[in-house]
Amino acid sequence: MLIKQLSVFIENKEGRLEGVTQVLKEHNINIASFSLADTAEYGMLRMIVSDPDEGRRVLKEEGFSTKLTDVIAVKIPQKPGTLHEVLKILFEAGLSVEYMYTLATAGRDTSIIMKASDLTKALDVLKQHEYEVCTAKEAYEINNISTNNV
């Protein structure tokens, strides 16, 4: 199934990244995972958070340009060659990956966030090959185990 990724446009300026984390902290929103891509002038922060809609609302209130994008989180076993297998399956189905990053590495499996050119088709193809994907709830809370235990 599809999960919502929260993306934020960040200028390469002092304190902007911190501005984002501050807002999320103040609203008690947890960042499960993120990736930060940078260009010469700006950065792109992509996050999986505990409550993407609320996260977007509060960031928007603070004047950030945000976007919710559908992505998938596919679980792959922690052993050599498994990421390659997934990419090969997608490639052979004529799909391309716009970007990807790690959601979680806890436990036996690694979960990878992927933005493929056609998400519905990607889900179908992965299902055919018996890959498991995270549910939205699972993704948003995937790294909560340790914090819950504290």
């Binding site: 993306s7 792109m44 340009s65 945000t66 976007k67 716009e98």
Partner: peptide, 15 residues
């Protein structure tokens, strides 16, 4: 300014 309605989270599109 990158207004929200024109914002894409794909760097390729922003470029």
């Amino acid at each position: 300014e990158v207004e929200e309605r024109f914002f894409s989270d794909e760097i390729r599109k922003l470029e």
